[in-house]
Design a protein around this nucleic acid. Structure first.
Length: 222
DNA sequence: AAATAGACCAACCGCGTTTGC
DNA sequence: AGCAAACGCGGTTGGTCTATT
């Protein structure tokens, strides 16, 4: 009943891909196209599980990958998208042609997070962190949580700090420290300001997001 | 020059969702 | 309709490279 198992783990290679394996995978996909990852390894003569083949192709071998440094514009776009979408790396990647979710995720974790923390911005909420927590920059992404969920009543912290991780546009009524990450609200659409008009629907509907509402379906790749 | 720490990134793992039977 | 496999995604790990001491 149902389907057969995904792969025989005991007969599959693991770890770094060799040049020969890459060549085989590329050759096979060039000849037969993507898809059916389950049967691909056998058909291509690879001792890998389909999952691994898919990952290797998507993250490394695909011919349309950019593979290069992220520009400042890329940074801004990622920050903006992350503020809207959270850790939905695949959705973010879908808006950045030539970039993979894994690449963006890695870049976020190694560069942008640090950058935002350095600016005193919480990389999760995209809001200013309380001064005592912002500096010095620690490698702990967040200070240890307080014993209780409720903020201690004496803390003069940002009252609107959104610590729940629901995906929604950040608070609409705050003005400070946002100009650098959210220029879209002030006139020109963010996408347009980065020269990405074709990527946006503009008219204050950046990325197909109508004001205050997220519709992931509208973000799918065509 | 060697040792160590930190940064980077490819790849794996586990889980939720989708799809085929 | 329900089960199980395939797929896709996000989090995490581990190896390698680079900078610093």
């Amino acid at each position: 009943m149902g389907r057969s198992p995904c792969c025989e783990k005991e007969h599959t290679n693991k770890g770094a891909w060799t040049k020969q394996e890459d060549e085989r995978l590329v050759a096979y996909i060039r000849a037969h196209g993507e898809g059916c990852w389950r049967s691909l390894p056998k058909a291509a003569g690879l001792l890998r599980c389909g999952k691994s083949c898919r990952l290797r192709w998507i993250n490394y071998l695909r011919p349309d990958l950019k593979r290069g440094n992220f520009t400042a514009d890329d940074d801004d776009l990622i920050i903006k998208l992350h503020s809207l979408l959270g850790n939905k790396w695949s959705l973010i990647a879908a808006r950045m042609p030539g970039r993979t979710d894994n690449e963006i995720k890695n870049y976020w974790n190694t560069h942008i997070r640090r950058k935002l923390l350095g600016r005193g911005i919480d990389p999760v909420t995209h809001r200013p962190v309380p001064v005592n927590a912002a500096a010095p920059i620690s490698f702990q992404s967040h200070p240890p949580p307080p014993p209780a969920k409720e903020p201690t009543n004496k803390t003069p912290r940002c009252p609107d700090l959104n610590l729940d991780l629901c995906i929604s546009p950040p608070c609409q009524d705050e003005e400070e420290d946002e100009a650098d990450v959210k220029p879209a609200r002030h006139g020109l659409c963010f996408g347009c300001s980065l020269g990405l008009q074709k990527e946006c629907n503009c008219s204050s509907n950046f990325l197909g997001l109508t004001a205050g509402m997220l519709d992931f379906r509208s973000l799918e790749m065509k």
